[in-house]
Design a protein around this nucleic acid. Structure first.
Lengths: 309, 309
DNA sequence: TGCTTCGTGTAACATTTTGTTACATGTCTA
DNA sequence: TAGACATGTAACAAAATGTTACACGAAGCA
C-alpha cells in the first residue's frame, strides 16, 4: 500500500503558509526562516506541477486549488497532532519541562520547588539548566524562564520580575572590611559576573565614576553571588539571586543604592495553548515571586529605618 | 498555532510498521532498508517516551497504545494521500510517465507511440530513458519497462516478451561479405553491446566454440543494432530491437539459430493501484508487442520455407 | 540439540533534505 | 523617493535520513 506523497515537511510548511497567507508568518510559526518555507513551497509546486500561490511582489495569495488542498492538510495535520498529544497524555504523568538559567534555578527556584511539589504532587517537574534562549522547535520544552528586555518576536512571554541590582556580601565580610558607604569599596574585592556585567553602571549611579570597576575575579552564572556569601568579596546581586540570602541573613546589602536592569520573563512557544499543568506552574511561579518581592521590600523598608545599616 | 510533532517521516515509518507488524515489510513498502525503519521507530519511541512495539527476537508485536496511535495515523496519512491525489487529478491531463531502457525506446516503442497517441489523445505520455532499475520512491514514475530475469522482490511486474537473440546485419552487408552460414562470420565484423554480451553464447549454440568472439567494436544500448543496419558489421539483435528492421527489410537474419535470454517486464511500484491510464497503456503495450511477435514468427516461417536465405 | 533462517538492533559512514545567511527584487507607503 | 515589508535564490551548513555490514536472539527443522 504505497502512498504517493511529497515531503511531509513541505506539506506542513505549505499548510502553515496557506493558513497565514504569508511565508514569513508561517516561518515564525514553524521556527524556521522564511527562506526555508519559500524553498518548501517551491519544491512542492514543482513536485505537483501546480501553482499554489500567486506572488504579488510583497506577499502571496493562495490559489483556489491551494486553498482547498490546505484545508484538507490542516485536518490531517490536526489528526497527527491530536493523536500524538493523546499518546503523550496516556503516558505516566507527563513531565513539565522547564528551561531555566542556571543562576535563577540555583539561587531562587530550586529552594522553592518542594513547595510546588507539595501542592501539585502529580506533576513531574523537569528542570533543564540552559542559559541560551530556548529553541522551541528543537527542544521539547514547555516553558522557559529567561532574562532579557522582551524584544523577542517568535515566542510568547509574560513578565515575571524586574531586576534591581545592588552590591551584596556576607555580614562577616562587611564587618571585616568596614564597608559602610560606597567609598569603602576601595577596601573590597569586587566579584564580577560574565554576562551581567554591571559594576561600572552601578558605580556611576553611586557617584564613583573614577573607581576602577574592572578589578577582581570573574565568575559565571550564580557563582559570583555564592562567592560573596562565602566571604570572598562583594558581588552585584539582585532581588532574585540575592533574595534568599538577604531574607535569611547570610547576605547583606551595604548600600541603599540600586540600578534597574531588564527583567525575567516566562517564555513559551508562540501560539501554543497552555496545558493545565503549565498554567498551574506559571501561576505558582508568579505568586512565589510576588511573595519574595513583598518580603524584600519590607526588609529594605526596615533597613531604611535603621540609619546604621 | 504550533503543532507539537515528531519527525513526520518517523510517523510514516511507524504507521507502516504497525500495519504490517513488521519492520522489514514496512521497509519494502517505503522502499528503504529495514535499518531505516528501525531507526525511525527507535527515535519515535525516545521522543514519545513510549514503547510502541514489543520485540520478540524474531519480529515485533505492536503494543496496544501503538496500535491505536497507528490507526489514527493511517487515517491522517490517507487524508494526505487522497488530498494530494485530488490535486494531481485536477491538473491538466496528468502525464503518464514511463521509465524505459534506451534501446527498447528507440528501436521499438517510439516508432509506435503515434499509434497510442491516436487511440488515447487525452493521455500525455512522458518517456524517461534510463537503463537502471527505477527507484519508485525517488522518481515519480508510473511504470517502468525493464529487462531482467524477474528476481525483483520490491516491485510488481508482468512479463512482456521473452528475448530470442540472433545475429542481424543489413542485406547489403550480407551480400558484400557473402554471409550464408555461421562459418562465414570469419569474414565479418562482430558488433558488440556492453550489457547484452551474448556473442560467445550464440557462437557456442552455432557450433563455433573456437571462434574468437571478442573481436570487434563495443557499443552501448541500441547502437550495435543501428550500426548493423548502417552496414558496419553484424550485431546480435533480438525479437524486439531488430523487429522493425527485419519486418521492414533493412535488416536480415542470416541464420536460423537463436538463443533465449531473459525477458522484458512491465514493472510498477509494489501494491500501487493502477490508474485507468496505466491500465490502458499496459494493455496497449502488450497488444502491440504480441502483434510484433506474430509478424516476426510469420516472417521467420516464410524464411524457413525458402532454403536460400 | 545444533544449525539455519529470519527479523530486528546498531555503529559508522554516505547521501539527501532541510535550514541559514546574505543578497536581490518587487510592491507598498509616508 | 526612500524605507519598510515580503518573497526568491544561491551557496553553504547542519540535521535528518538511508545504507552497509555486522551482531544478536528467537523460531523452525532435521
Amino acid at each position: 500500500m504505497h502512498r504517493r506523497l511529497p515531503s511531509l515537511n513541505a506539506l506542513r510548511a505549505f499548510e502553515a503558509a496557506a493558513r497565514h497567507e504569508s511565508f514569513s508568518r508561517a516561518a515564525d510559526e514553524l521556527f524556521v526562516t522564511h527562506a526555508a518555507v519559500s524553498r518548501h513551497i517551491r519544491d512542492l509546486e514543482l513536485w505537483l506541477d501546480v501553482v499554489l500561490f500567486e506572488r504579488t511582489g510583497r506577499g502571496v495569495l493562495v490559489t483556489e486549488i491551494g486553498s482547498s488542498y490546505a484545508r484538507r492538510l490542516t485536518h490531517a495535520l490536526d489528526e497527527f497532532a491530536d493523536a500524538t498529544a493523546d499518546v503523550l497524555a496516556t503516558v505516566e504523568a507527563p513531565q513539565l519541562k522547564i528551561s531555566v538559567e542556571q543562576a535563577f534555578a540555583t539561587l531562587w527556584l530550586v529552594p522553592r520547588l518542594v513547595k510546588f511539589a507539595e501542592r501539585y504532587p502529580e506533576v513531574e517537574l523537569s528542570l533543564d539548566p540552559d542559559d541560551e534562549l530556548v529553541n522551541f522547535r528543537a527542544d521539547p520544552v514547555d516553558l522557559a524562564i529567561r532574562f532579557g528586555n522582551g524584544d523577542w518576536t517568535d515566542v510568547d512571554f509574560t513578565p515575571l520580575v524586574r531586576l534591581d541590582v545592588f552590591p551584596v556580601c556576607s555580614p562577616e565580610y562587611q564587618e571585616r572590611k568596614g564597608i559602610k558607604e560606597p567609598g569603602d569599596l576601595a577596601n573590597a574585592m569586587l566579584l564580577h559576573e560574565e554576562t551581567k556585567a554591571w559594576w561600572a553602571e552601578w558605580l556611576e549611579e553611586a557617584g564613583l565614576k573614577r573607581f576602577q570597576s574592572h578589578r577582581g575575579p570573574l565568575f559565571q552564572g550564580n557563582l559570583a553571588v555564592e562567592a560573596a556569601a562565602a566571604g570572598q568579596g562583594i558581588a552585584l546581586g539582585d532581588n532574585v539571586s540575592a533574595a534568599d540570602g538577604l531574607l535569611e541573613g547570610w547576605l547583606v546589602r551595604p548600600f541603599n543604592i540600586a540600578i534597574q536592569e531588564d527583567a525575567y520573563y516566562i517564555v513559551s512557544a508562540k501560539g501554543r495553548k497552555d496545558t493545565a499543568q503549565v498554567e498551574a506552574f506559571k501561576a505558582w511561579l508568579m505568586s512565589e515571586m510576588a511573595e519574595t518581592q513583598v518580603k524584600l521590600t519590607a526588609l529594605f523598608a526596615d533597613s531604611a529605618n535603621q540609619p546604621d545599616s
